[in-house]
Amino acid sequence: MLVLILGLLLFLGTHSVRIVADGWRSRTIARIGPLPWKGAYTLVSLLGFGLIVWGFGLARQQPVVLWQPPVGLKHLNSLFTLLAFVLLAAAYVPGNKIQARLHHPMAAGVKLWAFGHLLATATLADAVLFGTFVLWAVLDFRAARQRDRAQSTVYAPGRWMPTAVTVLVGLLAWGVFAFWLHASWIGMAPFGRTF
């Protein structure tokens, strides 16, 4: 569990700099330049992500079961995850109405993904992993909206064609991940057997 917690601290700590120290981040980027900042940010993030994957795998070998979620929550998690993939796509497809409405669809998508998994899973490692991501996503979304208000950020209204592309990309990515990649990368098939 310690490896998982260390990974979460590194990964989400790196991704929390704008939440807790936006001024320091801006000063550091001005002092060292954007490329060194992005390089260090990427290295620490990748190290944290690797530790999360490794630590979660270790924790799953000796699970501490907290409860037995009803099957309905697993189905709800599938719906939340599908919506999360659409929100993730909305963060990258320019000009879509979802981003125009939410402003920060990636943080909203992480909230849905993590909350759904928190409801549908049963172990202490699951609670630590997904609970931490839920908390981070809530704080990140709130901080981003506060920055928008402070800077009087205005978002373009969005168009229907990019929105349709966003939904299609999200649905396709969800399908590929849910039916193939989740089993090979995570070792659990959401719609089939577990490896």
Rank of each mutant, 00 (worst) to 15 (best):
T81F: 03
V167T: 07
Q61Y: 01
G13Y: 12
W113G: 04
T28Q: 06
V165R: 11
W24M: 14
A150R: 09
T42M: 12
K111F: 12
L83D: 03
A156R: 15
V167Q: 06
A40W: 11
V86L: 05
D148N: 14
V93T: 11
F80M: 14
L51I: 05
T14G: 14
A150Q: 05
A137T: 05
A100D: 06
K74L: 13
S78H: 13
L6R: 00
H15F: 09
F11E: 03
V93K: 03
V71S: 14
P69Q: 09
M106C: 02
P36V: 07
V176M: 07
A21V: 02
P36S: 11
T132G: 12
Q61N: 15
Q62N: 15
P105W: 10
G192I: 07
G187R: 10
H103K: 15
W113K: 08
W37D: 01
G170F: 03
R145T: 13
L9F: 15
M188T: 12
L73A: 07
L43K: 00
I29T: 08
A89M: 06
N77R: 08
G50V: 05
T14H: 00
A150F: 02
L47A: 13
L82T: 09
A127Q: 15
V154F: 03
S45P: 07
L129C: 10
A30F: 04
A107E: 03
F177S: 05
R31Q: 15
G187Y: 11
A143K: 07
T81Y: 00
G158L: 09
L87A: 08
F115M: 13
M161Y: 06
A84C: 06
V86C: 06
V128P: 03
A108H: 02
I29Y: 02
A40V: 13
V93P: 02
W180D: 01
F177A: 14
L119F: 14
P63K: 07
V176E: 00
L58A: 13
L58D: 08
F133V: 13
T81D: 05
